[in-house]
Design a protein around this nucleic acid. Structure first.
Length: 927
DNA sequence: GAGCACTGC
């Protein structure tokens, strides 16, 4: 009976929503096991039957509520509906490519609904940008006679409108990527549409790798990749030759005109650039009315071009700049209706993110700033580069949307032909730390085995791991650490996440969350070209002289102080007056709240007391260890790995130029800049950078007062000296060398303050031999230092290199042999032959006087030789000549020298000289 | 003395 019931229930599982199936199947299998073991299953069976009933009803209700889409037949995708339907039904993956106006973005989800997709799970449709996702959701909802939040859902950061009745979920690709953390098999979905894949953003490339790994586990899944006609074969190859369906666009022809710059070298061309733009605009003016879109590389070019055009053109031509950092209202200007001619000067925003309406003509400089990460210098670069052929065509296409257009390229056709076909995908030009961190947290296995559409260079992967290691997110074996796991949960850059985690220990979480959020959003400060000074003046109200970071905190506090008592309208006005973007302040606020929620979920506690600035900066520094720099010249700073930097001119520190700084980011544009800065104390670095700093030691030497071998320690981080000249006990660092120094300096040289009798004994013995040497004017009587060293070396055990350990050992050793450290006199004498001390008497007897004699062997010194001390009273009784006889031991040498100094004529009578000198010694000293 | 464009647990 139970077995029959189990058999009846099994097929019902596949009629439940996807998400519920794994759990229901598990329960069913459990019951079958029990049934086979003849255990009671009745209650379990009843419960399962009930749950299956509810679940299948839910799916049936979804199926019944599935919208039946209507189509506006004019779109190319709609015309090929049947073919697309068949392809989706027949293949797990298809690639649909077509230009703008093909309808692929808006109509493909509807075709999926027609196929009954979206019933078992959702149809997930990803967009690279939030604005695009939002407007697409509104548009599709409208076409389905529904509202966003019902049949069509929409999800992005801070915005979730997905309901029970949702079939189609439109979201940013970042959201889908984030969802893999909680739902690795993405069971919410039965279909994916990955839109704008040709842009090859980091998110898309990562997603396509993830989905490739997922497909074998989800055979029911359908995947549609849509792309402009840019390298669709690559996607096809990535998904085992999935079919590519090309759909025509609905655009007008664009005439291409090449107007290369004059001049042979770059300098000439730079001069010509402005003139070429004016010429192109004039040429287009002769073609007839219509707005012009000019593509330039950046804000500076736009400013220069705007000035040129304003001087050049009749008043009824309107010149509008357009770039992402422009305030929202200034951006909106391009959407305002207008009379006369309009020339929009734009960066790449107009290539993908923003569609400027009503453009008839395009002027393309062929240049753009492209972000390129240098794994060598660890700096993000923004060089101006020639854009690819695909990007140039994309730009040209911007004037064929409403009517036939003309695109003037300010370069030659040969130049165009010589360019790379496609823009390098982001994954090949970016710092990979964040991607690697996500992959590790998701347990996706080795990075080099991951099925990327295009695998990143191994050097970039290594560099990414290195940064994660610096942050303590992975260990030396590149395994994710507990801290790495926490970092992966924070939707911010790993460096910024590290600051947040460090803020817990520094008791400044509240403040650091605000700063971390600020660093994650666009700078809310606005600086319009024409009111730059006024804006700077207002922004100075929030500045903190030693830290751009605390400046953010100040702005935050000021804004929230206002927000507490002002209406939203008045708050907007306050923002406007202070050149602050209200929209970006809101975004900042949202990010801060989200981070606060996440860290409190992780068990971190906010500080109640206001934090100390130093504590805040130490927490920030924990994430920015690779971004410290030291002033090395008037305007030059040296960062990690000897990187030369300048301070970014917008920083509060640019005039102050402190000795040490940390930077939120290093970017190379015209020069290499450190941007968003604070003064740091180099001594903060070492405790935060354990395991990263390198130590070197110089001048190790015995210090009598410390009773230790002491050295000067130098601590460097990436080559920057964060500690210099620190006195440290060198013993534990290099015990072998320290013992050697201890023996040489403390024992042999006698620099040890010891109560041990051996030292007095040995010292006296050495003094005695040295005295003998001085008398005999030779240096070879005392055994060499090496032999004295060998004496101690043979007795002192290994590991003893300071006073405390020595005394401890000595006491024990002397208990067995009290004289174990005593030199023997014979052992100190290197020469067997004894010196006859009578030859070098300690005093001279003279006319009843006993005059003490000192000896010194130090040629060149005033008292070299022998010195006789005479009492003052006896001085006049002595004749200087008597002293020329010296003492017997010195006389022979003196005689030899005297003979040698004779003129040759006489000298020859005394050959051989030493013999004569020796024979003369018998003569008597005159009294 | 001045930077392309996006995304998020």
């Amino acid at each position: 009976m139970p077995v029959a019931e189990l058999d009846r229930l099994e097929p019902l599982i596949d009629l439940c929503p996807l998400q519920l199936r794994p759990l229901l199947r598990k329960r069913w299998q459990g019951l079958r096991r029990r049934a086979r073991a003849a255990q009671p299953v009745d209650r379990g069976l009843r419960a399962l039957a009930r749950d299956l009933e509810t679940a299948t009803t839910r799916r049936a209700a979804r199926l019944a509520a599935l919208p039946s889409p209507e189509y506006a037949l004019a779109l190319p995708v709609v015309a090929r509906r049947a073919e697309l339907r068949a392809a989706i039904a027949a293949h797990p993956v298809i690639i649909v490519c077509g230009e703008t106006g093909s309808g692929k973005t808006t109509q493909l989800p509807k075709i999926c609904l027609e196929l009954g997709r979206g019933v078992d799970g959702l149809i997930g449709h990803t967009q690279p940008r939030r604005i695009a996702a939002r407007s697409l959701a509104a548009r599709v909802a409208e076409e389905l006679h529904s509202r966003v939040g019902q049949a069509v859902g929409c999800k992005m950061r801070f915005h979730d409108q997905v309901g029970e009745q949702t079939f189609l979920k439109i979201m940013t690709d970042g959201i889908l990527l984030a969802e893999t953390q909680g739902d690795p098999d993405l069971l919410q979905y039965d279909t994916f549409i990955i839109d704008e894949a040709h842009e090859r953003s980091l998110n898309v490339d990562f997603l396509l790798g993830y989905l490739k790994q997922l497909l074998p586990r989800r055979p029911d899944l359908k995947l549609i990749i849509t792309s402009a006609t840019i390298d669709p074969e690559r996607f096809s190859r990535h998904f085992s030759n999935a079919p590519v369906i090309e759909v025509s666009g609905r655009t007008y022809p664009v005439e291409l005109r090449y107007r290369p710059l004059r001049g042979d070298d770059e300098e000439d061309q730079d001069r010509d650039r402005g003139q070429a733009l004016l010429d192109a605009v004039d040429e287009l003016a002769r073609e007839g009315d219509g707005d012009v879109l000019v593509f330039l590389s950046g804000e500076r070019d736009i400013r220069e071009a705007a000035e040129l055009l304003r001087k050049h053109h009749p008043p009824h031509t309107e010149v509008l700049p357009l770039y992402a950092r422009l305030s929202a209202s200034q951006q909106q200007a391009v959407f305002r209706p207008h009379r006369g001619r309009r020339i929009v000067l734009a960066t790449n925003v107009a290539e993908t993110s923003l569609t400027v309406p009503g453009i008839r003509y395009v002027v393309d400089t062929g240049l753009a700033r492209l972000s390129r990460y240098s794994y060598r210098s660890k700096v993000q670069r923004l060089p101006i580069e020639k854009i690819s052929r695909a990007a140039a065509d994309q730009r040209a296409g911007r004037c064929g949307r409403v009517a036939a257009g003309i695109c003037i390229r300010l370069y030659s056709e040969e130049d165009f032909a010589a360019r790379p076909a496609f823009t390098e995908p982001e994954i090949l030009r970016t710092n990979l730390a964040a991607v690697i961190l996500q992959m590790s947290a998701l347990g996706l296995g080795a990075v080099e085995d991951f099925p990327f559409v295009e695998a990143p260079d191994a050097r970039f992967v290594r560099d990414g791991f290195k940064l994660l290691q610096e942050l303590g997110a992975v260990d030396e074996g590149q395994r994710l650490t507990e801290r790495g796991r926490q970092l992966a949960r924070l939707p911010v850059d790993p460096r910024i996440g590290r600051m947040i985690l460090a803020a817990r220990e520094e008791l400044c979480l509240r403040e650091v969350l605000v700063i971390a959020a600020a660093l994650s959003v666009q700078d809310p400060r606005e600086r319009p070209l024409d009111k730059a000074q006024a804006a700077d003046e207002k922004h100075r109200l929030f500045a903190v002289p030693y830290s751009d970071f605390l400046g953010y905190l100040n702005l935050w506090n000021a804004y929230h102080e206002q927000a507490r008592h002002l209406s939203q309208n008045k708050l907007r006005k306050w923002c406007q007056q202070h050149f602050i973007s209200y929209v970006r302040m809101r975004e900042w606020h949202e990010v801060e709240r989200q981070l606060q929620r996440l860290v409190t979920d992780m068990g971190l506690r906010l500080n109640q007391e206001e934090a100390e600035p130093d504590a805040i900066h130490r927490a920030l520094l924990s994430g920015l260890l690779g971004n410290i720099a030291m002033k090395t010249a008037e305007r030059e700073y040296t960062g990690a790995r000897n990187l030369k930097l300048e301070l970014f001119p917008g920083s509060v520190l640019v005039k102050k130029r402190p000795q040490w700084i940390m930077a939120a980011e290093l970017v190379e544009t015209g020069k290499r800049y450190a941007r968003t800065l604070a003064v740091v104390e180099p001594r903060w670095v070492e405790p935060l950078a354990a395991g990263l700093v390198k130590r070197s030691h110089g001048e190790p030497h015995w210090e009598k007062r410390a009773g230790q071998v002491v050295a000067r320690e130098r601590v460097t981080l990436y080559g920057l000296p964060v500690v210099t000249q620190r006195r440290v006990n060198y013993g534990p660092i290099d015990p072998v060398l320290s013992r050697e120094l201890f023996i040489r300096e403390a024992l042999v040289a006698g620099q040890l303050g010891t109560p041990g009798r051996f030292m007095t004994h040995n010292r006296a013995l050495v003094a005695e031999v040295l005295e003998l040497e001085a008398r005999a004017r030779r240096r070879d009587l005392l055994v060499s230092e090496e032999e004295l060293y060998a004496f101690y070396d043979a007795r002192l055990p290994a590991g003893i290199h300071d006073q405390v350990a020595f005394e401890h050992w000595r006491k024990q050793a002397e208990r067995e042999d009290p004289r174990c450290l005593y030199f023997a006199r014979e052992a100190l004498l290197a020469q067997e032959e004894a010196i006859d001390t009578r030859q070098f008497p300690a005093q001279l007897e003279w006319q009843g006087l006993r005059l003490p004699v000192r000896y010194r062997f130090e040629p060149g010194e005033e008292d070299d030789g022998m010195t006789v001390t005479v009492p003052l009273a006896a001085l006049n009784q002595l004749r200087p000549a008597s002293f020329e006889w010296l003492v017997p031991g010195l006389l022979e040498e003196k005689l030899t020298l005297l003979i040698k100094s004779l003129p040759k004529q006489q000298r020859r009578h005394f050959v051989p000289v030493p013999e004569f000198a020796g024979q003369s010694l018998g003569a008597q000293r005159p009294e």
